[in-house]
Amino acid sequence: MSKYHPKWDYVNANLDIVQMKPAQLRMARAATRLSVRDLAELSGVTANTISRIENGSDAKQSTLDRLRATLEKAGVEFIPENGGGIGVRLKE
């Protein structure tokens, strides 16, 4: 019988979080009517970095997390690829 370990609470804890794709970033900005500069100001991520991510460049996870949190605060919900493709929608 194995013993409980507190670290196990964190194993797979984020499996339900959808990894934000470049297309979702563009869609989320369009849905919220935020320009690249607006999102940069709100998130603290430079406009050039946002543009590079939207064009498919890699980014640090912390940068993606910051952008995602900002967009979620603005009312965006990220939709996983569940047979219908990735997407975003605005929360009610």
Rank of each mutant, 00 (worst) to 15 (best):
L42D: 10
Q24E: 05
Y4F: 13
E54L: 09
L71R: 01
E41W: 13
L67W: 04
A59F: 12
R52Y: 00
G44F: 05
K21A: 06
A23C: 01
F78Q: 01
G44M: 09
R37N: 10
I53C: 05
N55H: 08
K60T: 02
I50Y: 12
S57T: 08
E41Y: 14
L39P: 12
T49G: 14
L39N: 13
K7C: 10
V18T: 09
L25H: 11
I50H: 09
H5F: 12
P22V: 07
E54K: 06
A23T: 06
P6L: 13
D38N: 07
V18H: 01
D16I: 02
L71K: 01
N55E: 11
R33W: 10
Y10D: 06
I17F: 06
Y10I: 05
N14P: 04
V11L: 11
V45H: 15
A69P: 02
A69T: 09
V18K: 00
L15M: 07
D65T: 15
P22C: 08
L15E: 09
A59C: 07
D9S: 04
I53T: 11
T46K: 12
T32F: 09
N12V: 03
M27R: 09
S51A: 13
L64G: 04
K60Y: 10
S57E: 09
L34V: 00
V76D: 00
S43L: 03
P6A: 11
K7T: 15
K73P: 00
N12S: 08
R33K: 12
T46D: 15
H5R: 12
D16P: 00
R68P: 02
G75Y: 10
A47M: 07
Y10C: 04
Y10G: 03
K60L: 09
P22E: 11
